[in-house]
Write a protein that binds this DNA or RNA. Structure first.
Length: 420
DNA sequence: TCTGGGGTCCTAGGACCC
DNA sequence: TCTGGGGTCCTAGGACCC
């Protein structure tokens, strides 16, 4: 039997989250900014209609913000993460298999369900009622076509937010009027290259010879072509795959020039990354540190570098990983630059029960270390205070700019809204 | 003045093996 | 004159996603 996929995608997700607790902002223009209040990462419909593009630096649109009284928010990932979890939980009642694809999207297996258009409408109204976030639903025999159906559900108001794209004729009509750049898996580079070959619409791409596409591009794009033709190549991920790397990096609120400041930052990243690692119950063998100046900074020379090191045996101990991070940092640190960003990456993971201990490395009591790290994590997550290691200093000068942060409405007792 | 953060997968090429 | 073939593993870099 042919599978049926649905993708449920929240409309203007971050903007919708901010609106949930500020209902007076309904129908008002609103944007959410990236970390450091740098770029626009989410826009309400009103802002999209003003022609403000995704990812534009906010300093370029300040005049529009003023003129149209656009409400500006710093990103509040605690809030968005919590609202996202509620949406996903609501979706579970509609399918035995829900794959959370991103913070605001999920694929559902709807194979064997009849009256799919009504079913899609039911999903929309339920999520709206239970969580308050508007969503659109795209339904099709492949994931790529489902994404396309979702695009149409968002774009064309007459669809009332649900498009069932199981019929081949309907697929063709939609493919014909969709620019190839809108297809899932076709990014900026591929779009340019395809256009040079005269492939402008999604239908042009769907009609290409798959072998030719594989030769010219990759097996990934070949799969996309098959999927556009109704042949399902990308399955639903029924269990969330284990992470293969963990990155913690930030742009600095202001440029840093001193050794101590940047070193503190990378030690902080090491602590955060290791915390995430323990959250996944994994150990890391590979550690990478990188730093760079801003490519936009014309006031001085640019510099970017990174260094990779391997631990003798896999670990999730903040003290061990932070020590290596500090050593790697010293290898790439150069005096005399205005640093804009740095980060720590962990990789080469294994489970705690697969560890091969080094014959010559004197293992201190492993259980004791684990208990120490558990204690650190539980204190830091309790909200009652923080403890940290030597290299770190909490909330230093490099810390993010967040001038317009909304309250933690759903995750902090003191910030829960009151009804009077 | 001011430009995000965190991921995945694939490929090409070099080192190395027999 | 004629100078193998096939495989693995690793890394860097490039494409994509949200």
């Amino acid at each position: 039997m042919k599978p049926t996929f649905a993708i449920v995608d929240c409309n203007n997700f971050y903007a919708s989250c901010e609106r949930l607790f500020r209902p007076e902002l309904k129908n008002m223009p609103l944007v959410v900014l990236s970390n450091n209040d740098g770029c626009v990462v989410a826009r309400s419909q009103e802002v999209k209609d003003l022609g403000i593009k995704m990812a534009v630096p906010v300093f370029k649109i300040l005049d529009k913000v003023k003129r149209h009284k656009i409400e500006v928010f710093s990103s509040n990932y605690r809030l968005y993460g919590d609202i996202s979890a509620r949406v996903m939980q609501t979706l579970e009642q509609f399918s035995p298999h829900v794959e959370v694809y991103s913070i605001d999207e999920a694929f559902l297996d709807l194979s064997g369900i009849a009256a799919l258009n009504d079913y899609g409408q039911k999903i929309r109204s339920t999520v709206l009622q239970h969580v308050g976030v508007p969503v659109c639903v795209g339904i099709a025999p492949t994931k790529t076509l489902a994404k396309l159906a979702n695009y149409a559900a968002k774009k064309f108001k007459a669809t009332r937010g649900v498009v069932d794209l199981r019929e081949t004729e309907r697929q063709k009509r939609l493919l014909k009027i969709t620019p190839v750049s809108e297809i899932w898996g076709v990014g900026r580079k591929y779009t340019l290259s395809l256009q040079r070959l005269g492939i402008n619409t999604a239908l042009d791409l769907a009609q290409m010879n798959t072998r030719e596409i594989k030769r010219l591009y990759s097996v990934v794009l070949e799969r996309t072509v098959c999927e556009l033709n109704g042949e399902s190549c990308i399955d639903l991920e029924k269990t969330s795959p284990k992470k293969q790397q963990i990155v913690c990096s930030r742009s600095f609120g202001e440029k840093l020039t001193h050794y101590a400041g940047v070193r503190t930052a990378v030690c902080e990243f090491a602590a955060r990354a290791t915390e995430k690692l323990r959250g996944q119950n994994r150990l890391a063998l590979m550690v990478n540190v990188f730093l760079r100046t801003s490519p936009f900074d014309k006031t001085g020379p640019n510099y970017a570098n990174n260094a990779t090191g391997k631990l003798i045996c896999p670990s999730s101990d903040t003290r061990i990983i932070m020590a290596l991070v500090a050593r790697l940092f010293d290898m790439i640190w150069q005096e005399g630059y205005r640093y804009a960003k740095a980060g720590v990456m962990l990789g080469d993971f294994c489970s705690p029960d697969q560890v091969q201990f080094d014959l010559f490395d004197r293992q201190p009591d492993q259980q004791q270390n684990d208990r120490l790290m558990q204690a650190v994590d539980s204190i830091n997550q309790s909200g009652r205070g923080k403890i940290w290691f030597g290299g770190q200093r909490p909330q230093q000068d490099w810390f993010m700019k967040q001038a317009n942060l909304s309250p933690a409405y759903t995750t902090r007792w003191s910030s829960i809204p009151e009804v009077k």
